[in-house]
Design a protein around this nucleic acid. Structure first.
Lengths: 236, 236
DNA sequence: CGGCGCGCGAGAACACTGTTCACACAAGAG
DNA sequence: CTCTTGTGTGAACAGTGTTCTCGCGCGCCG
C-alpha cells in the first residue's frame, strides 16, 4: 500500500468514480454517464466529484483512454498467446481479438471509434498514443515477418506498381519515424488490411452489416484468411 | 402553390426548422442541435416548436433521413453522370462520390454512420430503406454488369472457394429477396468492396487515417481501382 | 501528542437542456 | 357571423454541468 492513507483513499474514490462512469457508459451510452448519476452511486454530493475530475469532459476522456487501452490490451493478449514463431497466426489472432473486443464492448468502441463526441474534442496528446497501439502491434509483427523473409516478394512488387509517389513517400517517412524496416508497398498492404478489418468491425458494431451478412463470424474468419494472404504471408 | 395559405405557411416553418437544425448540426455536432437554439433562430417560443416536431429525437430523425437521402442522392448523381454502358466507370464514380460527400459533410456523416446516438433509437422503418440506397445502387450496377457477362469468371470461382455455406445461403436469400440476378460469390465480392470503401471513408472522416495516410485522395483513387479489379470488372 | 492546515464534502445557486400545460389569439370553414 | 381548429405564448418541472461559499475533521508536521 504505497502512499499515505489520504492518497490511498483518494485513489479508491477515483477508481469508484471511473467504475461507476463505465457502468453507466455500458448501460446507457455516452449520454448516460452523468455526474449526478455517478454522485448518486457513490452517495456523494455532485460538487464533491470536482475534487477528482476536472469536468464531465475530463471524465469522458478517462473512459476514452480506458477503452483504447483495454482494446489494445486485448489485441496484445491474443498476439502473445500465439507461439512466437507463428507470425501469420499471431497477426490473425490479433485481428480476431480486434473485432471480438469491439463486439463485446460496443459502447466503449463507439466512444473510441464512433463519430467524435460532439462538443468535446478529445485531447490528442492523451489519446493518440494509445489509440495507435493495436495498429502498431500488428505492424510490428508484419515487420519482423518481413525481416525473416516470410513476405512474398510478388505481392510487394504488385502493390508497388499501384502506389503513387506521394503516398509512398509518406509511408517511407512513417517507416523511418517509427523505425520499421518495411518498404512503402508493405506498409500499404498493412494499411489495406487494417482498413478492411476496421471497416468490417465498425459496420458490424454499428449495425450496418446486419441486413447484409448474417453469420458474421464465419465471414470475418474468411476475411482474416484473405487479409493474411493479401499481406503475402503463408500460414504455418 | 398547392394547398391553403395555412398549409403553405406550415411547410415554410417546417423547412425553416429543419434548415436551422441542420445549420446547428454542421456547426456544433449533434449536441448543438437544440430546440431552444432553433426557437431562437426562428424568433419563436420553444413550445411552439412542438406544433411541428414531436420531440428532439424526432428532429434528429429528420436530420438523419435527410443525411442518408443527400448521401444517396450524391452517389446517384455521380452514377447517372457516367455513360450508361460504362459500368465499371459508373461504379467507380459512385464510390468516389460516396467518399466525397462524406468528407464534405462530416457532421451528417457522423450522425448517419457514427456510433448510434446515445439515448435515442432511430426508428428503423424510416431509416433502413434510405440508408441502404447507395449499396443497392452499386449492387444494381454490378448485377447488370454480371448480366452482360462483364464479370470475370475466375474471380467468382476463386471467391466461391473461400465462402462458407451459411454466408452463401444468406447471400442467395438476399439475391432472391431483392431479385438480383447475382450468385452468392458475386454478392460476397460486392460486400467486400463496400467494406473497404466504407471502412476507408469512416476512418478518414473520423480522423483515424490522418496519422497513416497523408494524401488520402491519391490513396483512395488507387483503392477504387483495386476494388473494381477485385470485382472482376475491366475498365472500358 | 497536540495544534491546525487543507483535503474533502455539502448545499445552494446559475445557466442551460427537453417537455408539458393552460391559456390566448387569429384564421379559415360552415 | 360563429366557432372549430391551428398556432403561438409563457410559466412550470425535472434534469443536466459548473461554480461558489461554507464548514468539518482527518492526518501530517512540529
Amino acid at each position: 500500500m504505497a502512499g499515505t492513507v489520504r492518497e490511498r483513499r483518494r485513489q479508491e474514490t477515483t477508481d469508484a468514480i471511473l467504475r461507476s462512469a463505465r457502468a453507466h457508459l455500458e448501460r446507457a451510452g455516452v449520454e448516460g454517464v452523468t455526474l449526478r448519476a455517478v454522485a448518486r452511486d457513490l452517495d456523494i454530493a455532485v460538487s464533491a466529484l470536482y475534487r477528482y475530475v476536472d469536468s464531465r469532459d475530463d471524465l469522458l476522456t478517462e473512459l476514452l483512454v480506458e477503452a483504447f487501452t483495454e482494446h489494445a490490451d486485448a489485441v496484445d493478449a491474443a498476439v502473445d498467446a500465439v507461439a512466437a514463431d507463428d507470425l501469420p497466426g499471431a497477426i490473425t489472432a490479433g485481428l480476431r481479438a480486434y473485432r471480438a473486443w469491439s463486439l463485446a464492448h460496443p459502447a466503449q468502441f463507439g466512444l473510441a471509434f464512433g463519430a467524435p463526441v460532439p462538443g468535446y474534442r478529445a485531447p490528442a496528446e492523451r489519446t493518440i498514443a494509445v489509440a495507435v497501439r493495436p495498429g502498431s502491434r500488428i505492424m510490428g509483427l508484419y515487420a519482423t515477418a518481413y525481416d525473416r523473409g516470410l513476405v512474398d516478394e510478388g505481392v510487394l512488387t504488385a502493390r508497388a506498381s499501384t502506389l503513387d509517389d506521394g503516398t509512398a513517400a509518406g509511408f517511407d517517412a512513417l517507416a523511418a519515424r517509427q523505425s520499421y524496416p518495411l518498404p512503402a508497398p508493405a506498409i500499404a498492404l498493412a494499411v489495406d488490411a487494417f482498413v478492411r478489418v476496421h471497416g468490417f468491425t465498425v459496420m458490424e458494431v454499428f449495425g450496418q452489416l446486419r441486413p447484409l451478412v448474417m453469420p458474421a463470424d464465419a465471414y470475418y474468419e474468411q476475411l482474416l484468411g484473405e487479409v493474411v494472404a493479401t499481406l503475402g504471408l503463408r500460414a504455418l
